[in-house]
């Protein structure tokens, strides 16, 4: 089923264009990696603060207001560039276990980020008064982002 979808997609004009114009994939990957840099660094700052390892002079709510809006701005660009890459090489992505693991980790970390932001918006001191939960969620989020970037690179080696 999915194989047939990949076959169909890879024969569409848009996919054939991406496959044959040889600068499209590296150019789109470059934009994708630059966006990963913004998301990864923003999330690392927030996660380290949640884990009490950096930025301790600022309350957690301020760090959330500083960094999380970037995620919601940049993740759509990541999805768009990722979709272009997937249309260009559907079976390389959709049938790839690293790609599937990456998407699973991405959905998980976005839900965690959404919850962290929502709680903080309702009560600015929420995470400052729940240290253990903040440390655990920060560590989990950071691990997931490292996993996402790693799985992204390993897609090429399956």
């Amino acid at each position: 089923m999915l194989e047939r979808f990949c076959d169909w997609l890879s024969n569409t004009p848009i996919s054939l264009t991406i496959q044959t114009v040889n600068w499209i994939i590296p150019a789109v990957q470059t934009v994708h990696i630059l966006c990963v840099a913004l998301v990864m660094s923003s999330m690392a700052m927030l996660d380290l603060r949640l884990m009490q390892l950096a930025g301790m002079r600022q309350p957690i709510s301020r760090m959330i207001n500083r960094f999380v809006p970037w995620i919601w701005f940049v993740v759509p660009i990541l999805l768009a560039t990722g979709t272009i890459l997937t249309i260009g090489e559907p079976s390389r992505e959709l049938l790839n276990p690293y790609f599937r693991a990456k998407m699973l980790m991405l959905v998980t970390v976005l839900i965690i980020t959404f919850v962290i932001q929502r709680r903080s918006n309702k009560d600015a001191t929420y995470w400052d008064s729940r240290k253990v939960a903040a440390i655990l969620l920060g560590a989990l989020s950071l691990l997931l982002w490292v996993g996402i970037v790693s799985a992204g690179r390993w897609i090429a080696y399956y």
Binding site: I33, V39, V149, S150, R153, A156
Partner: peptide
């Protein structure tokens, strides 16, 4: 691929973090 993964992770942290300071210099963030 393992070393390359480390290279990519470290690179995104370099670029992302230094961009935060660059954006401050341009009055666009922080």
């Amino acid at each position: 691929p393992t070393i390359e993964t480390v290279h990519v992770l470290a690179t995104v942290l370099v670029v992302g973090s230094v961009t935060m300071l660059d954006l401050r210099l341009l009055n666009l963030a922080s």
